[in-house]
Write a protein that binds this DNA or RNA. Structure first.
Lengths: 202, 202
DNA sequence: ATGGTAATATGAACGATGTTCATTTAGTTT
DNA sequence: AAACTAAATGAACATCGTTCATATTACCAT
């Protein structure tokens, strides 16, 4: 069978991504394979390679969509609060909740490694940077005396910290039980850090 | 060829681990395979499975050794400093340096995932917990008014934070250049957090 | 209608992976 | 020397990512 013309390239692409996301969501990165995705959308492996460069490319596309969802959630959260401190804390909680609800997708974003020496494409790194920006702009009103560079660094430190809690929680290496404890940890990290950062000039 | 009796089980085990570590060190997790390890020590795949349950087991053993090296480095660092604050900051720097010097090994410890549902064995989780304990005991003298639980939580938050910086730095998702900038970030995170944690009662 | 062209999809093939286990081999014991 | 047993093998199986010569069919010009 060939030249069925059942679907356009873009349709196949979309179907493949949806099927792949279903696999990842259910079984994590290890549950994903080219043949499984192909079978799930009623095509063969070869077809997948007409639409994606390779599996890494496919995964990158999935991750892009995940980062977009996360970004949306964070934007919504920012819209809900006016107080700067409240905003930051809620941002952290949103991050944790997202990782908890979409664990496998979140893991795929941050644990998938490209072949040695290869860097993620610029558009991808941009999506990560965008997240840090959200933190930066939320941080600004809290530290009006600080230079832009200091704020940038503080945002990076703070968000890396939240990220680290997330990672260790997911890999069960923090012996805390349940999401709530993780939220507490996050709160501790953020509020103490912010008190230190805001409260003093050095 | 069979029954060579060239080496004892333990010798083969040691040889295999050494060879595997060489592979990981040079090419990361993706460079590791049962056949490659076997070839490197002059045995066949089958033999490897007489000594290890499976590849996950082998990797767990490598990771145990890595965690031991890291723990040693941290102990040394603690012995070098008396001032509590100095101790904590140096501990953070040691962690970053280790990850920078043994990147592939460090990655293998924290990014290797066991099959769905399977937890790391207790002895492994103990090695991770041991690291957190080091932070806890260093933190105690700085926060004499705090309860053990609060200190435990603070140590977890602090160390997760350092860990997060490490992760993002290694995956090149922090747009900072060089190890020194990462050290600066770590310093920022730790010193601000500690000022917040120590300086106030709530 | 018919033939030709080009787009579309296939699936066999390749080299790699983890894992198993019947079989072979070489020490050890009787 | 024969029997026994521990040690090591390597072929076999199912899976993986990736490629590409081939087959099929839609479309278009005649």
């Amino acid at each position: 069978m060939a030249r069925r013309n059942d679907h356009s390239r873009d349709e196949i692409r979309e179907m493949a991504l949806a099927a792949a996301e279903k696999l990842v969501s259910a079984q994590g990165a290890k549950g994903l394979s080219a043949r499984k995705v192909a079978a799930a959308i009623g095509y063969t492996v070869g077809t997948l390679y007409l639409v994606f460069d390779n599996l890494d490319d496919l995964i990158l596309q999935i991750n892009a969509r995940t980062l977009d969802r996360l970004h949306d959630r964070m934007l919504e959260e920012l819209a809900r609060h006016k107080d700067p401190m409240e905003r930051l804390l809620q941002l952290g909680h949103t991050y944790i909740s997202f990782a908890d609800e979409e664990t496998h997708h979140w893991e795929l974003v941050f644990e998938h490694r490209l072949p040695e020496g290869q860097q993620p494409p610029e558009w991808f790194r941009e999506k990560v940077a965008r997240m840090f920006s959200l933190v930066e702009t939320s941080l600004e009103p809290l530290a009006t005396t600080r230079s832009p560079d200091e704020i940038k660094q503080a945002a990076a430190a703070l968000w890396s910290g939240v990220h680290g809690i997330c990672i260790l929680a997911i890999s069960k290496q923090l012996d805390v039980a349940g999401v709530d404890s993780v939220q507490d940890l996050t709160h501790s990290l953020m509020s103490n850090y912010l008190r230190g950062f805001v409260g003093s000039n050095r």
